[in-house]
């Protein structure tokens, strides 16, 4: 902590001489303490997942949801300070609602990410405020249908002026990650929170930019990655929360919804199995090494 004692870390609106905003960097520290969140963009949708640390046995299982719906086709998950995240979600909902009021159409994921990026960035500019202690992953499926307008009554002309362009591709799944600085990029796979290193390593092994995964595969991978990223030496118990968004022809019909119970349980079962298998392999290897050692002695 080179910043301590220099005074440059005491306010948002002051840069340090080497061009850093320490308040923002401290906010990132807050994120690094939060439960792992990940997002996967696959070929036919988005999967969001979060490792929800169970801080008390008195908490009701499966209550206190951490992944929020922002619009029908938009979901947000975040790591870091939960109250900050709640406010972030409120803002996201307001943005989505006001977009609908103005344009009579759902907000594209990219525009929502842009507006929220701008919102977070504004909290890095003033000495009177503190940056958000969260990194958020925004997932959405922009409708592949041609510009669906709220309250639209017909299909419009089938040809000619204003007619449909049959081969034109619209929408699709999109994933963005927004950091406390306001920085946001689009991702194929995003991870944040305490287990982000392990999660990122796992995400990189997946072929997300090429052929892509199917939604079901992505759900299973997401569950596995959260289990892999979980560190039982530090946190004992956790809950997995998962949501997904498909296109109009997929299982959620373009909506952001919770992954159905049966599929989630199956994904968790496979995840636990994968972890156990891994541990067994490690143990085998250790034994082997030990054996070799014995041989050497002989």
């Amino acid at each position: 902590m080179t910043s301590i004692g220099t005074g440059y870390d005491l306010s948002n609106s002051i840069f340090s001489p080497d061009g850093r905003n320490f308040q923002v960097e401290y906010a990132v520290k807050a994120v690094e303490n939060g439960g792992t969140s990940i997002g996967i963009r696959c070929k036919d949708g988005i999967v969001l997942a979060v490792e929800k640390i169970v801080t008390s046995k008195l908490l009701k299982p499966n209550a206190n949801k951490r992944i929020a719906t922002v619009d029908r086709h938009l979901g947000v998950v975040y790591s870091g300070m939960v109250p900050d995240g709640r406010h972030f979600v409120d803002r996201a909902r307001d943005e989505a609602r006001s977009w609908r009021d103005t344009f009579k159409t759902p907000i594209p994921t990219s525009d929502l990410a842009s507006r929220l990026g701008g919102y977070l960035q504004a909290y890095t500019l003033y000495s009177s405020v503190r940056p958000f202690g969260i990194t958020a992953i925004v997932g959405g499926f922009d409708s592949e249908l041609e510009a669906p307008v709220d309250g639209e009554v017909g299909n419009g002309p089938s040809c000619g002026a204003g007619g449909k362009n049959k081969d034109k591709k619209h929408g699709g799944p999109f994933l963005y990650m927004i950091e406390p600085s306001g920085l946001y990029w689009g991702y194929y796979g995003a991870a944040t929170g305490k287990g982000r290193q392990a999660a990122k390593a796992e995400l990189e092994k997946l072929d997300l930019s090429g052929e892509g995964l199917t939604l079901e595969e992505a759900v299973k991978e997401a569950a596995r990655i959260i289990y892999v990223a979980h560190d039982d030496s530090k946190d004992k118990d956790f809950e997995l929360e998962m949501t997904w968004i498909s296109g109009i022809d997929g299982p959620t019909k373009g909506f952001h919804q919770e992954v159905p119970k049966a599929l989630k349980e199956e994904a968790e079962r496979l995840a636990k199995k994968a972890i156990d298998d891994d541990d067994d392999e490690d143990e085998d290897e250790e034994k082997k090494e030990g054996g070799d050692g014995d041989k050497m002695e002989e």
């Binding site: 949801k65 992944i67 719906t69 029908r72 989505a96 609602r97 609908r100």
Partner: peptide
């Protein structure tokens, strides 16, 4: 119709 769509979104906020 627009009003009901917003209502449906509100329902999705509370009941995921």
């Amino acid at each position: 119709d627009r009003h009901l769509k917003e209502l449906a979104i509100d329902v999705a906020y509370i009941t995921p």
